[in-house]
Design a binder for these strands. Sequence first.
DNA 1: TCAGTTGCCTAGGGGTATTAGGCTACTCCC
DNA 2: GGGAGTAGCCTAATACCCCTAGGCAACTGA
Lengths: 189, 189
Amino acid sequence: MARAGVTVERLTLAAAELADELGFENVTVSTVARRFGVRDASLYSHIKSARDLRVRVALLAMAELADRVADALAGRAGKDALVAFANAYRDYALRHPGRYAAAQLDLDDETVAGSAAGRHSAMTRALLRGYQLPEPAQTDAIRLLHSTFHGYVTLEAGGRFRLTPREVDASWAATVAALDALLRNWPSA
Amino acid sequence: MARAGVTVERLTLAAAELADELGFENVTVSTVARRFGVRDASLYSHIKSARDLRVRVALLAMAELADRVADALAGRAGKDALVAFANAYRDYALRHPGRYAAAQLDLDDETVAGSAAGRHSAMTRALLRGYQLPEPAQTDAIRLLHSTFHGYVTLEAGGRFRLTPREVDASWAATVAALDALLRNWPSA
DNA sequence: TCAGTTGCCTAGGGGTATTAGGCTACTCCC
DNA sequence: GGGAGTAGCCTAATACCCCTAGGCAACTGA
């Protein structure tokens, strides 16, 4: 019998692809095993559990997203940087819905610490340097930006904006422009 | 044998409670049946499927949330109303994490149409009346507010803000204040 | 009272998660 | 080249969840 050549990396990648195709909630040990043409039980020499597999997909997604954002941010500043950041974020989420959903998995503190989450907020902090916000406003602004981006793409992907006819792309552009205006005039008290 | 007195309403309520206690993903036909002391198969004369049950919890949560927001909004206007809206929203999400997660369930358009989602955006529209935004800025603002609120509570509940020491309550207040400032100075172009 | 309806049960088929234990295909070292 | 050892994959078996079919008993109303 030829071996299937399963490795943790290939498993994680396959799981990520499955997530984008079928939704993250349908990423199961069985479906991944099936894609490799092996039995489910065979995967347990590579992964610890179904959750382990899902966490790996989450970490992969977070790293990929951080990479895209870093690329988009390179050489830009001010509103230019904000727009690039926002669009890279949204693009990733819409193009890889399953991966993005994975990135929202509830991870324990230790795992979060070892993830790309730190890079993400460091980049946001760098982005905000152009707006000259003092602490703690800076932290608040990071949280606001992250919340708005995350909330927007989640609601958009969930079809929650389909009730109103207004184009979601146009709303997105207006939203990012509004955030830029807000950052330039952050209320002091 | 005495009957357990199962009804769709009691099932939905029990499922909602289980969601808040164990997380929405652990709301299962079996756990709910167990709580009633009956066999899982017995529930299928009341609900159509596990998904049906979850959708009912989602609709319940959306209606409850709309109620809380409506109460908070009564008799208020301007920033006062915005703050009340925001706090009611966040309170509900944090106090009822399972229900709130349920409300995020991906529903088909027909179900969404029959839900409290319409009430929700109508209230937001009413809230914005105090800020006098013309269309399409008003729609964009609704989407921005919803995105930010939803994103914030989701990330907060998911522990994504624990990396930074800044108090989440303080950040929340600052965020809402910032949104108020933004609505009062919405960028025209 | 008794016919009909409704509520709950048992049986059973199908799927996923996971452990235990076995066989086999590579690897590398003498 | 020939074992010895490791790693990859398999079958078997348990447990839990989803759901259908069919049965009996408990209510309901004429």
